[in-house]
């Protein structure tokens, strides 16, 4: 029993320790999460605009997108999008006479998780946009602003405080969802942890260490988002 918790030296930063590998895993986890979050943000913004102002066809396509993505387990989606995405790209390359390529794990992970995030972000941002009082948008139109200017100067700045709590939640979700990429074989924190634990048989040490790393990532993000929200809500009464 004692040796279960006594092999913390496996986490050391020396040559035979896993310390640096774990931190590298955390770094790629962070990169994938950030990339997917930003991609989700862009999809969410466009999706929300499409859902609120788009034609009937756009709206029904977006409804199918958000409903399906939110009803299927992330693990299944990741596998489907990964195989479908890489397969489609290589088919296109094949038609154009190029040789199939190996898509980098980082890019594939970002795109796959970004598409998933986009569905949730669409709903968050749509709700935030609808919370803007109509009078503000009408006033902007009355000033003669074009739709793009209204979006840039009124809608987006005014929706940010409403969208921030939901987006903070989505960031936490994507940071944890990166662990699912381990199942497809991307080398991020969860996969490195599993390899290390399997090789050394020190399951407690590595899974607890990985948990602590994920937890520190989410706790730091919490502080960051709380500050961001306070900044976005400055001047608003009684919501702090």
């Amino acid at each position: 029993m004692s040796d279960l918790f006594s092999n913390w030296h496996l986490l050391s930063f020396s040559d035979d320790g896993w310390g640096w590998r774990m931190l590298e895993g955390l770094w790629s986890t962070f990169q994938i999460a950030l990339g997917a979050f930003l991609m989700g943000l862009v999809i969410g913004l466009l999706g929300a605009i499409g859902k609120l102002h788009g034609s009937r066809l756009t709206r029904s396509l977006l409804a199918i997108y958000t409903t399906l993505i939110r009803a299927v387990p992330e693990l299944v989606l990741i596998l489907l999008l990964y195989y479908a995405g890489t397969g489609a790209i290589n088919q296109v390359l094949d038609m154009m006479g190029y040789r199939p390529i190996d898509i980098s794990g980082l890019v594939a992970g970002i795109v796959v998780l970004g598409i998933v995030q986009g569905a949730y972000a669409t709903e968050v941002i749509r709700g935030a946009m609808r919370a803007i009082p109509n009078g503000q948008l009408e006033a902007a139109q009355a000033f003669g602003m074009s739709p793009v200017t209204v979006l840039r100067r009124i809608t987006i700045p005014a929706m940010i405080p409403h969208a921030l709590p939901g987006m903070a939640n989505l960031w936490l979700i994507v940071a944890k969802d990166t662990a699912l990429l381990a199942v497809v074989g991307f080398s991020e924190l969860a996969l490195i942890t599993r390899q290390a634990a399997g090789l050394t048989q020190a399951y407690w040490v590595f899974f607890l260490a990985a948990g602590a790393l994920y937890l520190s990532l989410t706790l730091v993000s919490n502080v960051f988002f709380r500050r961001l929200e306070r900044h976005a809500r400055r001047g608003q009464p009684g919501l702090s």
Binding site: L180, A190, A197, F207, G211, Y214
Partner: peptide, 13 residues
């Protein structure tokens, strides 16, 4: 702790 760590890691632990 539960909400700050991936379920996959909890499951494997």
């Amino acid at each position: 702790v539960v909400r700050g760590t991936p379920l996959l890691i909890q499951l494997w632990l």
